[in-house]
Every structure is written in C-alpha cells, then in structure tokens.
C-alpha cells in the first residue's frame, strides 16, 4: 500500500527530465566545487580569522539579525493585509512590495540614497533633527531590510493563503475578537511559514551587496559587511576572498538546510490531508 501510493507519483517523470534536472543541479554545484578547489587550505583558518575578516563577519551577522527583526515587524502586518485584507489597490500594492525581489540591488541602493540620503526625500528632514543615516551601520540595516522584506512577505503570505480562513472564521463565530484570532489562531497556524520567511530574509540580508555599496559605503567595522570585504580583498588578496566566500557558502548551506528541515515535514503534513 505504502509503496503503491508513492511510486506512481515518481514514475510520471520522464527520464530526460531527470537528465536535464541533473544538468541544472550541476550548474549550481559545479561553480561551488570549483571555488573549493581554489581554497588555500593550509592558510584557511588564519585567513578567515584575521582581524578584518572577523570584523566583517561580526558586522554581517549583527546587521542581518537586526534586519530580520525589522523584516518581521514590518513584514507580518504587510503579509496579513495582503492575504486577508480587502481594499482597492491591493494587487498593485502586492506587486510593488515584491519589487525589491526583481530590482537590481544597485537600483535599490540609489532609491534608498534619494530617500534617506543627506539630500534625500526624508534625509534632509532627518539631518535637521541631527540624524545622519548615510555611512552608518543604520544604512546597512536599511539596505538589507529593503532587499530582504519581500522574502518574508512572500513566504508568509503563501502560508496564510494555504492555511485558509476556516479556523479563523470558527474562532470569530465563537466570539473571539480580531486581536485574539490573530494571536491565538492565525499566527500559530502560519508559524512555520513565518520561520522559513525569517530565515530566508536573514540569508538575503547576509548576502546583500549592491544596495549596501551604493547607499552605505564601505568602512571597516561600520559598513563593510562580509560581501563588501570579499569584494575588496579580491583586489589584492584573492586567497582571503576565496576563503571568506567559502565561509558565506557554508553559512548559506546551513541556512537552507535549516529552513528545509523545519518546513519540509510541515509541508508534507499539510499535503497529507489530500491523501487522507
């Protein structure tokens, strides 16, 4: 029974699809493998534990953590409004929120510059108040949040839509207020989606480069995150650049692994209702 239930689903895929899929997988894995062959292994640990490397890694982890929190704070309401609300221009808002996903990060950086920069839309008022964002760690966090927010919104909105509104309606019928429904029903229901969205947002923040370079600048310990450090080290010290790249790859693999281990069983469970 168990075998018969699974096998037909698998054999519907033609063999040539497997071959092309393997080529696709190789296309991603091979460059990573090629990079590993260039790592200067005897010097690997000294290279990644040098002062500038550790400073950049620390800054990257700190700013990405703050960006992730900001993404959750801003992204959860945004996803709720997009998935549950009904208002004119909803579809337009949805497309616009996802824009940073498809925009080149450099464009995002320029847009942020003209918003929060010293002569920007908000920046000129902020500088009157004595708040300077450009060239500060705040600028790095803003750039990361800008590019990472759609990942969280998209992931959470998908969870909200697939979870449906049945439980929420039931809770409301039983007399629960909107706040209680949100706290006791909706959010627990989509927690896995929120978690994977947050992990993806963290990963995207960690890899942010273009918007940071354009908007925040590059100064050790303040704005020079790990990707910027790699970009700079590549000029004179390719060994360090490759070693640090590998560190980022390992972190990324760990993050992807973490996300899938967390969400895969849940996805199977939600899909299991169809089998039953």
């Amino acid at each position: 029974m168990h075998g018969a239930g699974k096998a037909p689903a698998a054999i519907t895929i033609p063999l040539w699809i497997w071959v092309v899929a393997a080529a696709g997988g190789l296309f991603i894995l091979l460059p990573l493998a090629a990079m590993v062959t260039r790592v200067n292994w005897p010097q690997f640990v000294p290279l990644i534990t040098s002062g500038p490397s550790l400073t950049a890694l620390g800054l990257s982890l700190r700013t990405s953590a703050v960006s992730t929190v900001l993404c959750i704070v801003l992204g959860v309401p945004l996803a709720l409004v997009l998935a549950r609300g009904q208002f004119p221009g909803q579809r337009l808002l949805r497309s616009l929120v996802l824009l940073p996903l498809v925009l080149p990060p450099v464009v995002g950086g320029i847009a942020l510059l003209y918003t929060f920069g010293r002569r920007g839309l908000l920046g000129s008022s902020l500088s009157v108040l004595g708040i300077q964002i450009a060239f500060s760690t705040t600028a790095v966090v803003l750039a990361q949040t800008f590019v990472a927010l759609p990942f969280l919104v998209l992931s959470l909105e998908g969870s909200l839509r697939s979870a449906g509104t049945r439980y929420e309606s039931a809770a409301a019928t039983l007399g629960a207020g909107p706040g209680t429904v949100l706290r006791r029903v909706t959010l627990p229901l989509v927690l896995p989606g929120l978690a994977s969205g947050a992990v993806l947002a963290f990963a995207r923040s960690l890899g942010e480069f273009g918007a940071t370079l354009t908007f925040a600048g590059s100064l050790e310990g303040v704005t020079r995150t790990l990707p910027l450090e790699i970009y700079l080290q590549r000029e004179t010290d390719p060994d360090t650049a490759v070693a640090l790249s590998l560190v980022l790859v390992v972190i990324a693999v760990a993050i992807v692994g973490l996300t899938f281990r967390r969400t895969a069983p849940k996805l199977l469970n939600s899909g299991g209702t169809r089998d039953a």
């Binding site: 510059l113 920069g117 010293r118 002569r119 450009a134 060239f135 370079l213 354009t214 925040a216 600048g217 590059s218 100064l219 050790e220 704005t223 020079r224 910027l228 970009y231 700079l232 000029e235």
Partner: peptide, 19 residues
C-alpha cells in the same frame, strides 16, 4: 574617511549625490 570605496567611481558617486 567615512567610507573607503572599492572603486573611484563609487567615491565620485558619493560626492556627486551630495552624501
């Protein structure tokens, strides 16, 4: 410096934008 850029064009960009 408030920033040490990787290319001279990035330096120029920070100045021409008034940052």
């Amino acid at each position: 410096p408030v920033s040490e850029e990787s290319s001279v064009t990035d330096v120029l960009g920070k100045v021409s934008s008034g940052e």
